[in-house]
Design a protein around this nucleic acid. Structure first.
Lengths: 150, 150
DNA sequence: ATAAAAAACGTAATAACGTAATAATATAGG
DNA sequence: CCTATATTATTACGTTATTACGTTTTTTAT
């Protein structure tokens, strides 16, 4: 089987999972939201909001930024997409929902390429540090810049 | 001694340390750069770039955004200031230069208040996760959102 | 000392990112 | 069907950050 076909399959898997997740939580994966999600899946990496505007706009119909931002907000709330603040961009979250793990997005400082890793060890260490800082709850997402070993 | 005096003293400490650091590394802490740094120290928390523009502008002379951004870039490169990507703002780095520690900026999701904690434990756990991800080097700064326990 | 090179700064314009306000449309529940 | 609510469209506006280019200041080397 070709890698292209494999990727296509993986794509469909993600879409199906997203669909299931929304169904189970009574969330509505409307056409626009699904198109945004699909575009992120297909891109295979972080994409900026205005990039999404361009990619999802046709000649006839240009989407407004706010439309994309709303879709992104929805997808983020659903836990399907993660915002990379350092890059002003958005990526698919490859998360099997392990509540105890920290979802770390490693971002290559040069290329912007990302790799997601889940770690309960980091989660625990961060939690401990948070207590020191007087923080009670802590986001399960974090972003770390670095350099890919090529 | 009043808390105000204490703060003033702390302020001068930071300024002196910044001065020393620059001297030792052949970096030039020019007037503008020092004013930006001092303003951040005095504010006691994160400040936006355009806020800095306002605060450092007089009626006679309005500074251009780019002037502030340049000063911030310098201060960031020197390790004196950290950018909070999630907040589009900038804060003093309270770092005794412990190379082995991760400098974690906890950011209160509601108020934007920040607390900096250094942790070698987190550094190690993140390093391990980074290896899994195929990352060779990793930024010693990270930003974690959460909620302050009030 | 002085010329050449490099770093810092000023000014203006503009790009990139994000939100507010308002109206129209679709969807779910009674 | 009808009403309440969620979603989408459109326009305008606000904030954040960068680019381009010329001038001044500082450093380096002769």
């Amino acid at each position: 089987m070709s890698t292209k076909a494999l990727r296509k399959e993986e794509e469909e898997n993600l879409l199906r999972r997203a669909d299931d997740l929304c169904r189970q939580n009574n969330l509505r994966l409307t056409p626009i939201r699904e198109r945004v999600y699909r575009e992120l899946v297909q891109s295979g990496g972080p994409v900026g909001a205005y990039d999404l505007v361009d990619r999802l706009s046709s000649e006839k119909k240009r989407l407004a930024p706010v439309t994309i931002y709303r879709a992104l907000d929805f997808l983020r709330d659903a836990g399907l997409v993660h915002r990379l603040a350092t890059q002003n961009s958005y990526v698919i979250s490859h998360g099997q929902p392990d509540v105890n793990a920290m979802k770390i997005m490693f971002v290559d400082s040069k290329t912007g390429e990302t790799i997601e890793v889940h770690s309960t060890e980091v989660a625990e260490a961060v939690k401990k540090a948070a207590e020191q800082a007087g923080f009670k709850s802590v986001s399960p997402f974090m972003e770390v810049e670095g350099e890919i070993a090529h």
